[in-house]
Computed example of a mutant assay.
Amino acid sequence: MTTSSILRKTILLFSITVICLQLSAQDFSLPKQYNGRRHRGFFLSMALGVNSTKMESDAKYYGLSTYKGIGGAFDLKIGGTLTENLILHATILSHGVTGPKVSSDEFNINDVKTDNDISLSEGMIGAGLTYYTGSNIFFSSSLGMGNFILENDKEDISISTDWGFSMQLKAGKEWWVGKKWGIGVAAYYHHTNGINQEGNIAEEKLSSHNFGIMFNATLNGRK
């Protein structure tokens, strides 16, 4: 081995040693390669499922009426993370019942199923927070404004109520199916209340209690 070869190897070894000492002194660690499966950055959650509805209407003129039924539900959340696993998002929720069962004190009827031309739907627009645990269990709450729409296709009638306070509580579990996509199941409770046509002879106090089960699909971006 020549002197120049030995010198080159000595200089290389010395340089590597110095670099290692500097990294150690700075408590330096190389960044881990991003492999997805984290709740960071952009957030989009879409869900479809079934909903059990109970809506009460306490009207000055018609007394107490109750609408019940089971129908489809849709849930959309879009936003971004405040910190990893904690997400701030807008919430849009909608569900409806075709041919709901109606009870009325005024008309002395109890759980009478209406024609399928009659439908009752409820919606909410608001904002909320969703938190994921390390095992991908999530808890979500949203507050906003909600209203009801009663339609009679046979008579071509559509009645939309005033907007009132609305809220949703939701919890579930997801499993990763890709670097950014997760799918899972969730249960939720949705409540809306308010006063429609306040001060009018037809004024009614509205209140709903909804329970639903949904299949979730979530896209998780990255900062």
Rank of each mutant, 00 (worst) to 15 (best):
I125S: 12
S158G: 04
G144A: 05
I137N: 10
T53F: 12
S207K: 07
L23S: 04
G80L: 02
L86W: 14
S104L: 02
I70F: 05
L44V: 12
K113D: 13
M46D: 08
M145F: 08
S158F: 05
V185C: 02
T218W: 00
M214L: 13
N216F: 00
D162F: 00
K101D: 13
G41L: 07
G199Y: 05
E203Y: 00
K9Q: 14
L206G: 00
I118T: 03
K54F: 03
S166A: 14
K223E: 06
L12A: 14
G99Q: 06
K154A: 14
M145H: 02
N193G: 04
N147E: 05
F211W: 11
I125T: 03
V18D: 03
L150T: 06
I149R: 10
A73R: 08
I6S: 12
K179A: 12
N85C: 08
S45C: 09
I201S: 13
M46F: 15
S52V: 09
V97W: 00
E174K: 01
E204S: 15
S121F: 01
N136C: 07
I92A: 15
N147Y: 07
G172Y: 01
E203P: 01
I195S: 04
T114P: 01
S5C: 07
L93S: 15
I70R: 13
S94V: 06
G80P: 01
H39K: 13
K68T: 09
K179R: 14
S104A: 03
Y67D: 06
N200E: 05
L23R: 01
D117W: 03
R8H: 11
N196H: 13
D75P: 03
T98W: 10
L169Q: 08
D153M: 11
D156L: 13
D117V: 02
D156I: 06
Y131A: 05
G164N: 03
Q22F: 12
G126K: 07
T83E: 11
L93V: 07
E174W: 01
I19D: 02
Q22T: 06
S141C: 09
K101P: 00
L21C: 12
W181C: 05
L120A: 07
K223L: 10
F107H: 10
Q33W: 02
F215C: 08
V177T: 07
L150G: 09
G146F: 00
A25F: 06
K32F: 05
E151N: 11
L13D: 10
N110D: 10
Y132D: 04
E151V: 09
K101H: 11
S4V: 06
A186S: 15
D111K: 15
P100N: 01
Q26P: 01
M145Q: 03
T53S: 13
S103T: 14
E56M: 05
L48A: 12
I16R: 10
S5D: 11
Y62D: 14
G96E: 12
T192C: 02
W176C: 03
S65R: 13
E56Q: 09
H89E: 03
M1A: 07
F139W: 13
K170P: 05
W176Q: 09
D75H: 12
I125R: 09
G134L: 09
N136H: 12
S135K: 15
M124T: 00
S135I: 04
I183A: 08
F138G: 08
N152C: 08
Q197L: 09
S94T: 11
M46Y: 15
S29E: 12
R222S: 15
F43R: 06
